[in-house]
Every structure is written in C-alpha cells, then in structure tokens.
C-alpha cells in the first residue's frame, strides 16, 4: 500500500503515503469512527446487533445438530463450535476495516462517484477504506466470535500456550487479509462491469462453506475452497492447528495470503487505471 497506484497520482512531496503516515491516519480515523458510534447509537446497535443475532443462530444450529449425532465428519460438538467461532474472527476483523469496498462494487463506479478518491494525494485504495474504518458491524462479529471460541476452548480444555497464541494472532490477520483480497478482487470487477455487487455477494456467500469442517465436502469442492477461493485458510486450517496441532497446509497460509493480496491489488490497480482513462 506504500506505492501510489500506477504512479499516476503525482506526489507533491516524497513519503506522504509512507507506511507510518498511513498507520497514524488509520489510528486517527478509527478514533473518529468510534466517536461517530456515540452519536448514532441506534445504528450501532442495529448493525452490530444484526451480526450477533445471525451468528448466535448459526451456533444454535450446530447445537441442535449435535443433539442428534455425536460427530460430523469426525469432529465433536465443541470442536465444530470452535471452528465456527474462529471463522467469525477474520471475517469480523476484515469487516471492521474494509466494508467500504461493498460501496465500490455496488454504486461508486456506477454513479461516477469514484473520481473523488483519485484527486487526493493518498493511495486511492487507502482513501476508499478509510471512509469506514472501525465500522461497528464488524465489532458484533468479533465479539460473538470471541465468546464462541472462548466457550468452546474452555469446554475442550484447550490450553493456549504462548506458542499457540503467537501463531494464532497472525493466522487471524492472514485470514482477514484473505477475506479482504477476495472482496477487493470482486469489487474491482466493477471497473469493467460498472457494478459487481452480485459477484461480491456470491463470493461472500461461498465463505459460508468455511463454517463447517472441510472434511464433509467432496474433493473438488475442497480444492476450490483451498486454492482458487482460499477460504479454508480463514478457518479450517488455523482451527485444525489450534485443535489438533495439525500443521498440514499451515505454512501455506502466509504464502496464500500474499499471493491473494498481490492478485487482487493488481486487478484493482488495473481497474483504477482503466477508470481514469475513461475520463468519467
């Protein structure tokens, strides 16, 4: 994110888009967002609350299923619950910082409003994201995820050793970045198709597969969820490590994350360049 897109934005002074400045701005803008929460409390409750309701019901579904069977795909109740709760964490973190991408796919390109991100001396992607830093809906997801994971972990007697925590935190960040990449990729399609909300929704829906152990799916579907749309790395792979110490695929996580980011950022940059040349 340190490089201005395609060098098309003229940089008045060197280093204005430096990583430090970005971090400082992110901190500041997140603070502004949190101030907004106190102003629009009902909005916050509706937004965050809607996710709490939805995710709680998903956990209830798992509970109901295990009233009738002891295992699913070899996983026990609290293990599935742990996986489900864990899957909320990267999604929530991603949601907290990149929700504005939905608006790009939905209408910003279509209505020609995107130009305003191009006329300021900051990376356009950063500028887009900054409009919804600390978006409150994500807090509902993170909160429900933390509660579910903690409950499941305590029931499983899962000991969080320092090593596991040291691995778990970057894994959540990687998972969030994978969600961001997919969202960015499909939002960028709008530069060619003017609106890409349906593609974004479809890609987002497919993440629902990651709520359950990959073991229950057929081989081709598992492959799809591991490589082309790498949602497996947002929940199944890290949860398998934390629950069973399984390191299969674990070390692929950073690689997949970097590749996903590079591909989606490349498509985004090409799209931004295209938008500029159409002179909208």
């Amino acid at each position: 994110m340190t490089e201005p897109t395609g060098g098309r934005m003229t940089e008045p002074t060197g280093g204005r888009s430096g990583p430090l400045r970005m971090l400082r701005l992110t901190w500041h803008l997140s603070g502004v967002s949190l101030h907004r929460l106190t102003e629009y409390r009902l909005d916050f409750l509706l937004g965050a609350g809607s996710f709490v309701v939805r995710l709680t019901l998903q956990a209830v579904v798992v509970g109901i299923v295990f009233l009738h069977v002891p295992t699913i795909g070899g996983w026990h109740y609290h293990q599935v619950l742990f996986l489900l709760g864990y899957s909320f964490l990267p999604r929530g973190l991603d949601h907290l910082f990149t929700d504005q991408l939905w608006e790009v796919g939905r209408k910003l390109v279509q209505r020609g409003e995107f130009y305003r991100y191009l006329i300021r001396p900051v990376n356009p992607l950063y500028l887009v994201l900054s409009e919804r830093f600390c978006y409150p809906d994500g807090l509902g997801e993170l909160l429900t995820g933390l509660v579910t994971v903690s409950y499941a972990a305590s029931q499983l007697g899962l000991r969080l050793t320092p090593v596991r925590i040291a691995v778990a935190l970057p894994l959540v960040v990687c998972g969030a970045l994978i969600h961001t990449s997919v969202k960015l990729l499909f939002a960028s399609l709008s530069f060619w198709t003017t609106t890409s909300l349906s593609a974004m929704t479809a890609a987002n829906d497919i993440a629902d597969f990651a709520r359950y152990p990959m073991d229950i799916y057929h081989g081709p579907l598992r492959w799809l969820l591991t490589w082309p749309l790498p949602y497996a790395f947002t929940s199944y792979v890290p949860a398998s490590y934390l629950l069973f110490g399984s390191t299969r695929y674990l070390w692929w996580t950073p690689v997949v994350t970097v590749v996903a980011l590079a591909v989606s950022y490349g498509v985004w940059s090409a799209g931004v360049a295209r938008y500029e040349t159409t002179g909208s």
């Binding site: 299923v65 009738h68 069977v69 002891p70 295992t71 699913i72 795909g73 909300l197 349906s198 929704t201 479809a202 829906d205 497919i206 629902d208 597969f209 709520r211 359950y212 073991d215 229950i216 799916y217 057929h218 579907l221």
Partner: peptide, 23 residues
C-alpha cells in the same frame, strides 16, 4: 445473485446433512 446465493446455501446444507446422517 439470488440464484447463486440459493445454490451455495443449498449445497452447504446438503453436504452438512449428508455428514450428519453418516453419524
């Protein structure tokens, strides 16, 4: 969009219940 959402949710559910019935 509606069709793809329905297709995804149906597929997830079919696999889930297949696994549940296995146990």
């Amino acid at each position: 969009t509606g069709i793809s959402s329905a297709a995804v949710s149906t597929t997830v559910q079919l696999f889930l219940w297949r696994a549940i019935y296995a146990g």
